[in-house]
Design a protein around this nucleic acid. Sequence first.
DNA 1: ATGACATATGAGATATGA
Length: 259
Amino acid sequence: MRVATWNVNSVKAHLDVVARWLSEAKPDVVCLQEIKCEDQNFPRAVFEELNYTAAVHGQKTYNGVAILSKFPLENVVRRLPGDNSDEQARYIQATVIDGKSNPTITSIYLPNGNPVNSDKYPYKLAWLDRLIAHARELMKLEEPLVLAGDYNVIPAAIDAKTPSQWVNDALFLTATRLRFQEQAALGLTDAFRALHPTTASQYTFFDYQAGAWQRGNGIRIDHMMLSPQAADKLISAQIAKHVRGWEKPSDHVPLVIEI
DNA sequence: ATGACATATGAGATATGA
């Protein structure tokens, strides 16, 4: 099974690019973030035409996540447990019924957290704590689990072209990275880094500004975290970098694993 | 340095992003 995660920065604004990549790469499951539309406006018909069913947790203007799948989706969970007052649509989880391992797959859109001296940073840290708590529960099932999404976390200096640019940023602050490490310490494997332990210059985000793409000035912030039962099946992990060079792209590119 | 760029809303300017 090939599973992708992609922050599309508005599914409607970038629908052509999204459909083009689906037609080219033909992933079985795609976790989308920042769809920026309500459920009823999700372009479901376009994806059905490409043989995908969709589970959607949308929101107007901001955030919004979805899972596209060529296999049936069951046990859909919307919202990350742990704070009923959190109205932001940043989490959806489903069981993918492929008739074999039936993995649980999530689409996560972790808060950015900037500026760090605002209430946005504590919200990010609290959200990470909730994610860790939920991941701890899911790990107890001892089943194939793929925690995929836009984590808005640069795990280490190797994951940025110019780390010095990020030292005081919510994506790279020590408290952020410590929580990412805490999540990994539950026994989760960073799929891309596990298969490419020393690879730099492979990034999933390139800012629209200052010619970041042309300069190769990117960061690796989209991740697939695998339970042992999923990591055992891991065959490949690739960043579809070329998509960033297409006309009217998202600022993120897809990350694809085969399990 | 709050800017560059881009998106959504809504019809101008503002909030958000990373």
